[in-house]
Design a protein around this nucleic acid. Structure first.
Lengths: 123, 123
DNA sequence: ACTAGTGTTCTATTTATCTATTACACTGTA
DNA sequence: TACAGTGTAATAGATAAATAGAACACTAGT
């Protein structure tokens, strides 16, 4: 797994698993790989994986069952809320940073559209 | 100055000064506050400020003159290029992260528009 | 020459993160 | 009961980032 060395690894692992849950790669109620297997998968230490999991457990997205494993919550409302929250965070952060560079709403939209068309042509 | 504890402070100081240069708060050729004053301004250590400045000097955005001070480059092309680069980086990162959440181009645009109208009404 | 203000460099210490390792607690199965 | 597979916790060590403090190098004005 590729890590951005400017952000803590446990934080990136959390984002990675959240993505898998939101995109349905991990279904509600599905069992996650064991912490030891996850550590191998992302080439990190068990403790680092555990720290990421702890935050997801505290957030109610993961249910931890000692001796059995870690499971994605069955509560699909929580997953929907999580997706909404992550999207809002991303959009807000991007908007604020571009706005801080003195771009108007229209310029921000145009920059994004321009990026999309360029990206579309390249594929 | 408010810091995000997930990102190195020297990195955030650099972003902060880049913003001031791009928005014209700091004009081309203008002298920056001394490193000691900057450290007070952002409530960080001189060495941390110096590390941020070193990267901007290496990037050619800041000219350092020992005994005199640090100055914004006179080369406005470099500033324009920097602005373009930062915008592209922000747009690309935001797009990729939203795309990774399985949002289509249209959904990404709509999320952004929705955020803008909500934000507009709140002001 | 002196001094104040500037950038620059160095050392030592602290803190957060990550790793490695070991141990403990619980579940299910043979 | 034994054992393998799971989550959890604790310790010790390594590294990067940030701080504190001191010193050095250069410039301009007195």
């Amino acid at each position: 797994m590729h890590f951005d060395d400017k952000i803590p690894i446990y934080y990136q692992i959390k984002a990675h698993i959240y993505h898998e849950i939101i995109t349905g790669t991990l279904q509600p109620g599905e069992k996650l790989p064991s912490v030891r297997q996850l550590a191998l998968d992302v080439t990190a230490n068990v403790n680092t994986v555990q720290r990421a999991l702890s935050e997801m457990i505290a957030a109610g997205i993961i249910d931890s069952k000692r001796g059995k494993g870690n499971f994605v919550t069955m509560d699909e409302t929580k997953i929907t809320d999580l997706k909404t929250q992550l999207i809002t965070e991303q959009v807000a952060r991007a908007y604020q940073q571009l706005h801080a560079l003195n771009l108007s709403d229209e310029e921000i939209l145009n920059s994004l559209k321009h990026y999309m068309t360029q990206r579309g042509n390249a594929e």
